[in-house]
Simulated scan of single mutants.
Amino acid sequence: MHRATQYRQGDVLLVAATDLLPGSRPVEPTDGRVILARGEVTGHAHIMAAERVRYFREDETGRGFIQVHGPGPVALRHEEHAPVNVEPGLYEVRRQREYRPRVQAALVAD
């Protein structure tokens, strides 16, 4: 089976990674959920169940990573998007940005 190297849901992009950055520290789940991003407009969140997912933040840059464990995929969920099944592996969590010519780049509002 082919493992995807990227997953996208709204303003969240997961990109396959080989290692955590030095200084990365685990972030505790909230109510059994790993929160990857919260929408600025709606307050909705991109979440994954914490049973098989660990979230890490790198101190200096604030970059985020998730480690998905287990025999199969774990769903990335959001109230306004279809679930995305993420295969086990290590991923960097990135926020998508909108391109606006002659205007400063901005985070995608979700």
Rank of each mutant, 00 (worst) to 15 (best):
V53I: 13
P73S: 15
A37N: 03
A45R: 14
E51V: 13
D59S: 12
V68E: 11
E51L: 15
R33Y: 00
H44S: 13
T42F: 06
I35N: 10
A49F: 04
V27T: 15
V41G: 01
G62R: 05
F56H: 15
A49L: 08
R33W: 00
A37K: 02
P29G: 02
L36Q: 02
T42R: 02
P71H: 08
R38M: 14
P73R: 11
G62H: 07
H69P: 01
G43Y: 03
G72Y: 09
T30V: 14
V34L: 01
D31R: 11
G64H: 12
R57Y: 04
T61Q: 13
A45P: 02
V41W: 05
G70L: 09
I35F: 00
H46Y: 15
V53Y: 06
V34C: 06
V27F: 03
V41L: 11
V41N: 10
A50E: 01
L36R: 00
D59I: 13
A37L: 09
P73D: 13
I47V: 15
Q67C: 03
T30P: 09
Y55D: 00
G43T: 10
R54A: 14
P71C: 09
L36K: 01
I47T: 15
V41T: 13
G72A: 13
G62S: 04
G64L: 05
V27L: 08
Y55Q: 07
H44C: 14
I47W: 02
R63H: 10
I47E: 07
H69G: 02
A37S: 12
E40R: 14
D59N: 10
A50V: 07
G32Q: 06
E28V: 12
P73C: 07
R52T: 09
Y55W: 07
P29K: 03
R57M: 08
E58I: 00
V27W: 04
I47M: 00
I66S: 02
F56V: 09
D59P: 02
V27C: 06
T42P: 05
V34W: 05
I47S: 01
V27G: 06
E58T: 06
I66T: 03
E58F: 04
V41C: 02
E60W: 05
R52W: 11
R38H: 06
A49H: 13
E40K: 14
Y55R: 14
P73I: 00
E51D: 12
P71N: 13
G70Q: 04
T30L: 09
Q67D: 09
D59C: 04
E60M: 11
E51P: 09
R57H: 04
T30S: 08
V68T: 02
E58N: 08
G32F: 05
M48G: 08
T61L: 11
P73K: 11
G62L: 05
V27P: 03
E58L: 04
E51C: 12
V34D: 01
F65A: 15
R54V: 07
M48Q: 11
D31Y: 07
T42N: 07
E28R: 14
G70Y: 05
Q67F: 01
P29C: 03
T30G: 03
R33N: 05
T42H: 00
G32E: 01
